[in-house]
């Protein structure tokens, strides 16, 4: 056996083994994004009782697709590539009244955020109804709602599109009788995430 060749092979094997042993990881405990005001379209109305008020209320649905372009806000290595090495959790979701002074969300009856990839079944990330506790009041009026993620074990990396976008939908119901005139309402949506990535040197070298 050629000792030089054996030595070279051993060094190569050691290097390759090392590339799978050595790693780099990054952890972002919290990144919060407040999107530009979103317009939600009222989709219909129906009479339904509201339990707490014990009075008939006219409910109307609303919804809008909100694309969270995470690749715009986080480095590419945290949003692209295999989801096996990445963890992305929703920490919280918020919606706040926007528009004219005094705007509020007192007419809001429920809100939820779901995530979907392609044609898969949407998964609820967070939801809120009056009295569920996670509210942000300014004075007597409800001006914002903040809800912790209800499914914090869900790895949102599995839902990222190839361009690093998370397709979410914000839906809910409003009391159309108290809603200011119009078929739309505008609110400011905020989301907070936890992100962690761990890659071996071999993965970094191969660009995975």
């Amino acid at each position: 056996m050629n000792p030089i060749r054996n030595t070279a092979l051993a060094l190569l094997a050691l290097t390759l083994a090392g590339c799978n042993t050595f790693y780099a990881e990054a952890e972002q405990p919290q990144v919060c994004v407040t999107l530009a005001p979103q317009t939600f379209t009222i989709t219909g109305s129906s009479a339904a009782p509201v339990a707490e008020a014990a009075a008939a209320t006219t409910l109307a649905g609303f919804g809008a697709q909100v694309d969270l372009g995470l690749s715009s806000w986080l480095p590419d290595f945290m949003t692209k590539g295999s989801s096996d090495s990445r963890i992305l959790h929703l920490l919280s979701f918020s919606v706040a009244a926007s528009g004219a002074a005094g705007a509020n969300l007192d007419w809001l009856q429920s809100v939820q955020i779901t995530v979907q990839k392609g044609t898969t079944t949407p998964v609820v990330l967070a939801s809120w109804t009056p009295g569920s506790g996670q509210t942000g009041h300014v004075g007597p009026l409800l001006t914002s709602v903040t809800v912790p993620g209800s499914n914090q074990d869900l790895n949102l990396s599995d839902f990222l599109s190839s361009n690093g976008t998370l397709v979410t939908a914000v839906t809910g119901t409003v009391d159309s009788a108290r809603l200011p005139a119009g078929s739309t309402w505008t609110g400011q949506v905020g989301v907070c995430f936890y992100a962690k990535i761990k890659k071996t040197y071999a993965e970094l070298i191969n660009g995975n």
Partner: peptide, 17 residues
């Protein structure tokens, strides 16, 4: 960033090298 207000907490990266 791209019309959104983004705030990041202090974060940490590690490498075994």
């Amino acid at each position: 960033v791209n019309g959104a207000q983004v705030t990041t907490e202090a974060w940490k990266a590690q490498s075994f090298f």
